[in-house]
Design a protein around this nucleic acid. Structure first.
Lengths: 327, 327
DNA sequence: CTGAAAGCGCTAACAT
DNA sequence: ATGTTAGCGCTTTCAG
């Protein structure tokens, strides 16, 4: 592996000049430049990023977390974030956390150890305070997870309101015994959703117990499995709030199999308004959120932070919209 | 930001000893260790990875490419790869290529510039030779893309055979005019699939023209759009080989909408055997591949390469299986 | 068990 | 326009 020193020697100039050429600095004679380029070619030199990073104290890289790569909601979300950051000239790398605290720790470590210039987290099992304490004055931005202590910049959706309106809708439609399905119940997001669910019941003078909540299901397969359990003994649920559209589709598939008629006997509402909603019969009702705007604002804010602008932490919440289709 | 020098000074030892403590080296007195730990605590020191990387000439990081994050086939695939590598003690980072050659170049650059110890590519628009020429003796492994010139280690699926058997099946069932849908037709993978399609026709003495091939569709939405075009003017296709299950589901949705009866008038076969196959009515026929085994073998091989073992390039192909359901 | 010293590859004042 | 020099933060011989 040739280094700039090798290039310098071969082309008869100094390291500095080589560096100038590599980085397209002005004030290099055409002659020197040519000789350097030739040497680079000959030795097939490539810059060693490790040296650069140490020297310039930056890696121009932003980390983005995702619970698991293969996720119908988070994949498109992170994809959007990534695209925006790239356009702003940053390299972006994606980390899976597997809903694990230890994985999260590792990412914050990468940040504090300077492998990353900033990280964007799309979900977390930690409190804002703990994150803040771990990363100090390094930049971390929260996307999608509704944290609210103001330690970090957070851009999130109004989860409780979305669920509230969906729940209220179902109850007003005459549904009496609803099931609430959470994905990973430990996150603040899921807690907010549950609160919306409970609040809607309260406001309409309906009772609602913790029995109506079930956690840990999110995929199509899991929806089918869960449905097979629920519908086998002819449950008395007449409405389900699924934590994701995929889960909802799995439930719907199972309901059909067990002869439960949707929406006659059972109503189902999904989450995220994924295109899959259009493929079922009847088409799946769902909740759509303004993720696009959320991502735009977040990245704008991030760039300001990276540009050393000073301002107090930002917290912005985006509204959801209930989309009623056939289920 | 405190450095080991600060720690050394505060604890009254040398940089070397601090380094030994940080890295859990033996031969450090209990006393020194304690003083160093105390200083680390006091100054809330964290190691700067940039210095480490430069010094140890490694980042312990493996890059994995994915065309786009939000992809029903690649997401689970990359997820599996990532998990295996992590278990082997490597950090892994994921890069989106957006089916763009320039993005690919950037990743190879990261490899040659030593930001990465190895990269695994799950698809490519380049030839093996060009990749090899760009990365030299750095490690790049190919997963899923059926390259065959032997410059690199490649682990791939037998795409042509899978499509061949599906096509043959449809033709034998009496279907006469099939449509072949490719995702991104420039890749070798898609070319192999097309070859399988053509070969099956040849072997059964059927004609087949380039008109029967269509490219650039892969999502549910695109399936619906494509279906809306095809079924509007009552096409005479009586069978479709969709490049992915999601595309197939979109097509199926559109077919229903236009009153095209499946499987009576039209047969559809998807690809990848995603759980979504179970959610349609009739359930979607598809092609299942041995991705699990492919990933295992690939990572094993990668670890050998990283462990400096010498052996000539490996090329392994895994068989697919046609799964006939209702469509 | 510990410290001194060299050096990984690069950039950027500063001087000329 | 170019070279000299210092140094980013760390690990690792080598000597003691």
């Amino acid at each position: 592996m040739a280094t700039i020193l090798d290039i310098a020697r071969l082309s008869g100039v100094s390291k500095s000049t080589v560096s100038r050429v590599i980085n397209n600095h002005p004030h290099v004679s055409e002659d020197s430049r040519k000789r350097v380029m030739k040497a680079i070619e000959e030795l097939s030199f490539v810059r060693n990023a490790r040296g650069v990073h140490l020297r310039i104290k930056s890696t121009n890289t932003i980390g983005v977390t995702i619970p698991v790569l293969d996720h119908p909601y988070f994949s498109p979300l992170v994809s959007k974030i990534a695209e925006k950051c790239r356009k702003a000239g940053y390299k972006i790398v994606i980390f899976q956390t597997y809903y694990s605290i230890d994985e999260e720790y590792e990412i914050y470590e990468k940040l504090t150890e300077n492998e990353l210039d900033a990280v964007i987290i799309t979900h977390t099992l930690l409190s804002e305070e703990e994150i803040k304490q771990r990363v100090g004055d390094k930049i971390v931005m929260v996307c999608n997870e509704p944290l609210q202590t103001g330690c970090l910049d957070v851009f999130s959706l109004n989860e409780s309101e979305a669920v509230y309106s969906a729940t209220r809708y179902l109850l007003k439609e005459g549904r009496n015994y609803l099931l609430f399905c959470a994905d990973e119940e430990r996150t603040p997001l899921q807690q907010q959703r549950w609160e919306g669910f409970v609040q809607a019941h309260l406001d309409l003078n309906k009772t609602c117990t913790i029995q109506q909540k079930i956690s840990g299901y999110s995929t199509i397969e899991e929806g089918i499995i869960l449905g097979d359990e629920i519908f086998l003994d002819k449950s008395n649920y007449d409405g389900i709030l699924a934590g994701s559209d995929f889960l909802a589709v799995g439930l719907l598939t199972s309901a059909k199999k067990h002869g439960v008629s949707v929406p006659k006997e059972l109503s189902i509402i999904g989450f995220d308004n994924h295109p899959i909603c259009l493929t079922t019969f009847p088409a799946l009702s769902s909740i759509q959120n303004q993720t696009e705007m959320m991502v735009n604002d977040l990245v704008t804010c991030l760039l300001d932070r990276l540009g050393q602008k000073k301002f107090s932490t930002i917290r912005r919440v985006y509204k959801g919209e209930l989309i009623i289709r056939g289920t």
